[in-house]
């Protein structure tokens, strides 16, 4: 599903060049449930941005579901790829606060030019799946943090992406809610969608099936966990 070959990325800050990713080789199969760990500054956010086609990479090769992702795409092409391939979940949920839960979930479908009725129908299905059917007409600020993140997860799934990228999805949640959210991710994964979670919490990463540890811009450890066998083969 994801193939990275010698991905390098550096930022120019003033006169100094900061090398963030120093050659990442990574292979993630379809249906995997992976966590990326690392201390702050290890480059995990940058890696996620490149995987999410939000940021460009300097050298290397990136294939997503067999499609070669050019290192310098036009903004339009990048937007189309994001819409087709990727679902995002963020630490601070990033829901549009003037739209209801249902409208938020339906947003990616709007950019797929699906008509309004169909959008709402599909969005309601996914909202039901995360257990929030009764909250469809609520605004984000009327929902708890856990509920908001579930809305965000429904939103990330609604366009049937190949892969869901979650950036510290439990960072703003208490441990009980975090556990529920991770359980939801596991259910999503069980349906065959590749899920990639960036986290710095060990107990969160232990709930995935594979841990990739980033160290100063290179991959340090790559651990397959026991529960991997229960996932998709």
């Amino acid at each position: 599903m994801i193939e990275l070959k010698n991905i390098q990325k550096s930022y120019q800050t003033g006169y100094t060049k900061l090398e963030v990713l120093k050659g990442i080789d990574l292979h993630i199969e379809k249906g995997e449930f992976v966590s990326i760990m690392g201390s702050s500054g290890s480059g995990k956010s940058t890696l996620l941005n490149i995987l999410g086609i939000l940021d460009e990479y300097d050298t290397g090769e990136y294939r997503l579901d067999g499609t070669f992702i050019n290192k310098q795409l036009t903004q339009k092409q990048a937007a189309i790829y994001r819409n087709q391939f990727i679902g995002f979940v963020f630490q601070s949920f990033n829901l549009l606060n003037f739209k209801t839960a249902l409208e938020n979930v339906a947003l990616p479908l709007y950019y797929q030019k699906i008509d309004r009725k169909q959008r709402q129908k599909v969005a309601m299905e996914y909202l039901d799946r995360v257990g929030l059917r009764d909250w469809a007409d609520h605004l984000p600020n009327q929902l708890s943090g856990g509920q908001q993140q579930r809305v965000a997860i429904a939103r990330s799934m609604v366009a049937r992406p190949k892969i869901i990228l979650a950036d510290e999805p439990t960072g703003a949640l208490d441990s009980k809610t975090s556990f529920e959210v991770m359980k939801l991710f596991k259910e999503v994964n069980d349906e065959g969608i590749t899920v990639l979670v960036v986290t710095h919490e060990n107990d969160i990463s232990k709930m995935t099936k594979r841990i990739i540890r980033l160290n100063d811009g290179i991959i340090g450890e790559n651990i397959l966990l026991e529960n991997a066998s229960t996932g998709a083969s």
């Binding site: 903004q75 937007a79 995002f88 947003l107 950019y111």
Partner: peptide, 16 residues
């Protein structure tokens, strides 16, 4: 800005 960022992550093209 944030809203636009979210919309872009959801696949909004610059022209939209």
């Amino acid at each position: 800005t944030k809203e636009i960022g979210i919309r872009k992550a959801m696949g909004a093209t610059p022209s939209s």
